[in-house]
Each structure stands twice: as C-alpha cells, then as structure tokens.
C-alpha cells in the first residue's frame, strides 16, 4: 500500500483520476513556462537597467497595447481551461451521479473520529437508522423493526467495494464537518451535518487504499482514517456474504 504514494501524486486508482491529473500536470506545465519566461525577462530588466553613472532613466509612462499582452495570454489560457477542461470535467465528476441501479450504493456517516459504512445488503435497500439506537454493537443505529435493514451490513473504518462498477456514497455527518478524502481515487467531498451528499467514483485497481479526513474536525482529526478495500466482483460477493448482518442477534 505504501507503494501507492511517492513524492508526487499518488497512483491513479479511479476512472477520473487520469482526468484530474491531466489538469494538474497541464496547469503546472503552463505555470512553470509562464514563470520561467517571466523570470528571464525580469532578471534581464534588472541587469540591463541597473543604475550606472551617466546613464539616466527614460521618461515614459505608458506604452502601447503591449502591457495588455500578458493579460490577454493569461485570459486566453484561462478561457481554454474553463471551456475545454473545467466545465466538462466538473459536470462529469461532480454534477452527475451514475444511476443507482447500475452502481454499488453505500452510506457513509462521519463522526468524531470514525467512518461508519452502511451497506444495503442483498435487497439493495437501506434499513431505517436512528441515532438514538447507536451503541457499540450497532454503530449505524439500525432499527431492528425495519425489514429492509435485516440484511444490512455495517463496517467501521473499512470501506469494501467491488471493481468494475461505480460506487455511489451517500455522505453525511453526525456531528461536525468532515471531509472524505481518498487520495488514490482523487476523491474529496465534505460531509456536512444535516445534508446527505452523493459522491461517486469507480475504482480501476483492486487493493487497499486510504481514506483520510480533510476538514479539521477536532483533536483527533489526524487519526480519523479508514481503509478502502477494492475487491473483484466475486470476492466482493464472498466478503459480503461472510458479513454478519447488523440487526441479527449474535
């Protein structure tokens, strides 16, 4: 798992990771080019126009349109970035969510300082949950009276998902603002108390990845982490079947 991380961006493990990285690399390339060109010009000016005895300064205030050229270049680059990159990619990644029928759906509830993952089980329906029922045996507070919850599975600080189809996470928080961050997937979304926010991603690699909290949430913010396990579909079914449904008596 540590091979996932280096001195640059972590490995790409979701479908849109490449698209996000493309933007990061391209923008940094542009930034680097602008900065180098600009610096050369800047140093040239400093050397060329250093104070020398007998050489007076020139008296001029405004040139022609040449002062607008850097503005126009930057504006042009930005318009291209907006039109051909940011708007389409943002609409694919954040503004649309894959249909639930074709996705793996889970709920994640963040709290100080843990991630509770709620899987709907075979019936694909989430059981009713109630914060008042939460205890050590029932971290999601599932209501035993609700039939839809009979086959539900709950894991704490572990997210298990299958390869090959998108996962839609309904993200919420019990107490303060947290932020679901999976570096390898290039996923980040704040968990806002009082809201249920859909987040989606489709893994491209099996293995173990990391969830971190990216929004200051209290004194144990830095240890609020979890593991993501991406299984092949068969392994995932096996894993799910082996789980003890949450509301059944032990």
């Amino acid at each position: 798992m540590n091979g996932n991380y280096g001195w640059g961006l972590p490995i790409q493990a979701s479908t849109f990771a490449k698209e996000i990285d493309l933007g990061i690399y391209a923008i940094h390339g542009i930034m680097f080019a602008i900065f180098i060109l600009w610096s050369v010009f800047f140093v040239y000016l400093l050397v060329r126009y250093r104070a020398r005895p007998g050489v007076p300064s020139e008296h001029w205030e405004t040139g022609t349109l040449q002062s607008m050229i850097p503005d126009l270049i930057v504006l042009g680059i930005e318009i291209c970035l907006i039109l051909f990159y940011a708007l389409p990619a943002w609409s694919r990644i954040k503004m649309t969510v894959p249909p639930e029928g074709k996705s793996n759906v889970v709920e994640i509830v963040a709290e100080q300082f843990a991630w509770t993952v709620h899987y709907p089980g075979a019936d694909a329906k989430f059981g009713r949950s109630n914060a008042a029922l939460v205890d050590a045996q029932n971290p999601a507070g599932l209501d035993a009276a609700d039939d839809a919850g009979k086959d539900d599975v709950v894991t704490v600080n572990e997210l298990h998902i299958p390869l090959g189809k998108p996962t839609v996470v309904y993200l919420s928080s019990k107490d303060v603002i947290h932020s679901l961050f999976i570096p390898e997937f290039r996923v980040k979304q704040d968990a806002m108390p009082g809201m249920k926010i859909p987040v989606w991603f489709e893994p491209t690699l099996t293995g173990k990845f990391e969830i971190g909290c990216a929004q200051l949430c209290g004194i144990a913010h830095s240890i609020m982490r979890a593991d993501v396990f991406v299984h092949t579909p068969e392994e995932y079914e096996k894993w799910l079947a082996a789980q003890h449904p949450q509301t059944q008596p032990y």
Binding site: L9, M31, E78, L81, K94, K188, Q215
Partner: peptide
C-alpha cells in the same frame, strides 16, 4: 500562479484542504 489549480474546480477536488 499556484492559485490557478485551486481556482479550477476540477483540480481543486484533489488539492483542496
């Protein structure tokens, strides 16, 4: 300049916070 990838929504997903 480094504000640029933060101001672009898509790259901000990764770089935010």
């Amino acid at each position: 300049l480094t504000g640029l990838p933060l101001g672009i929504t898509v790259t901000d997903i990764y770089l935010h916070d």
